[in-house]
Amino acid sequence: MKRTIPLLITAIGGFVLIIAFFSSYTQSWGEVAAIWFDILAAIAFILGGGNLMKIHLKKISDRKAGWAYSGVTLIAFLTTLIIGLGKIGVNPSEQFPDYAWSGSYREVGGPFWWLYEFAFKPLTATMFAMLAFYVASAAFRAFRAKNIEAILLLGTAFIILLGRTYAGVWVTGWLPEWLEGLKLENLTVTIMKVFNTAGNRAIMIGIALGIVSTSLKVLLGVDRSYLGGGEE
């Protein structure tokens, strides 16, 4: 029972949506399912957020190494949550000035906006920016011409890197007109349009097939690891 019903739910949910796609009347069911999923995911925040609080509270109460940082996390979490859910410091919306709760929780100038603009955004954007450094160290360490495959990878990257700056123009700008196709900036375009297109297409077709077969395995109950292993 505990395992059969979920398997049935999975199979019925999936196959109904597949069949619905082919009928004029039911084509929108897929979108409805997507909205329902969003709602489920939003409700699941309670599980995730609760888990987050539990872990950090435990660290603090156990006085584990670095428990003070757990304190920072908790304070940041609760402050943001209260300000955001309570729409603190937010003015009403312009269409409904007499409804106190009608304003946007993200209103520019409000406390939640402040947290977004001066904490969330710089922190995440800086994490993103660290990639510039990692890209450099990866280029130094990993791009070694060990074999033909590696040479192709780094050679292409090399051409693109050069071709996408003014340096590319310097290096090959002297080429005569009949060799224009070999100018770095044009070579870049050819690589992108021909080789890159072919490679990407094959990957995409393969992925689509992989997804079809994975989905089928899930729907048919061949692969049921998410429900916990083979045995009943």
Partner: peptide, 21 residues
């Protein structure tokens, strides 16, 4: 790191509440 985890987890919860729930 601790701040970004706390702020962002709550940020997405707030969005989930006001924009979805």
């Amino acid at each position: 790191e601790s701040s970004v985890v706390g702020v962002s987890a709550a940020y997405w919860m707030v969005i989930g509440f006001w924009d979805v729930i």
